[in-house]
């Protein structure tokens, strides 16, 4: 059972609408339905960033403030995944670009093909996406239980801060067997 956090009671008293909902209503957010490209020439425009976690790039709906404080509403027209550096909005004066936040990752440097196989099988078994880097590393977002498992199996995992790029992602849940 997923419980409500204990401070929810207080928040309930503060309603109607919670202060955040009221604030966002004051001004319509910029609506983003798709990526306008990557590596687009933006001239002298002021660049603002929308920072997201790596696991938010697949979300179809995101309400957030940009780093410059502008309210945006991502409401994807299709189910595409955003990539780091995607242009989300552009006007005469400004542009909003997607930025994926770095996070703690378990980094593995398998020394042989058998290790690659075992590691990918074990992680894939948990349906967690794997990121293969150009340096032939296997990266996966830090998870305490996974780290313990890989460590005790002798794979010598280390933890490093990285950006997990969606285009490097290999996922074991792509077979739509989720329901």
């Amino acid at each position: 059972m997923v419980r409500m956090a204990s401070d929810q009671g207080e928040r309930k008293k503060n309603e109607p609408g919670s202060h955040i909902a009221r604030l966002t209503m004051m001004r319509e957010p910029i609506k983003i339905t798709r990526s306008l490209g990557n590596g687009v020439e933006l001239g002298q425009r002021i660049i603002d960033f929308l920072e997201v976690e790596w696991y938010e790039t697949t979300k179809s709906r995101i309400r957030k403030k940009t780093m410059g404080g502008i309210d945006v509403l991502v409401d994807k027209a299709d189910r595409t995944t955003f990539q780091n550096g995607d242009l989300l909005f552009v006007s005469e004066e400004q542009a909003i670009i997607l930025k994926i936040k770095p996070c703690d990752c378990i980094v593995l440097r398998p020394t042989n093909l058998i290790s690659v196989g075992i590691i990918c099988f074990e992680i894939g078994n948990k349906h967690i996406p794997i990121f293969m880097t150009e340096q032939k590393e296997v990266c996966v977002a830090y998870d305490a239980n996974l780290f313990v498992m890989l460590d005790s199996a002798g794979f010598q995992p280390c933890i490093q801060e990285r950006i997990l790029f969606p285009f490097q992602m290999t996922k074991a849940f792509g077979n739509k067997s989720m329901r």
């Binding site: 938010e56 697949t58 979300k59 179809s60 967690i128 977002a141 998870d143 305490a144 329901r179």
Partner: peptide, 20 residues
């Protein structure tokens, strides 16, 4: 939803389950 790093919950899988 808050998920602790020891909760054995993967945010990406939660997001994808929600999309489904």
């Amino acid at each position: 939803v808050q998920a602790g790093l020891l909760s054995n919950v993967q945010p990406i899988l939660i997001q994808n389950a929600f999309e489904a």
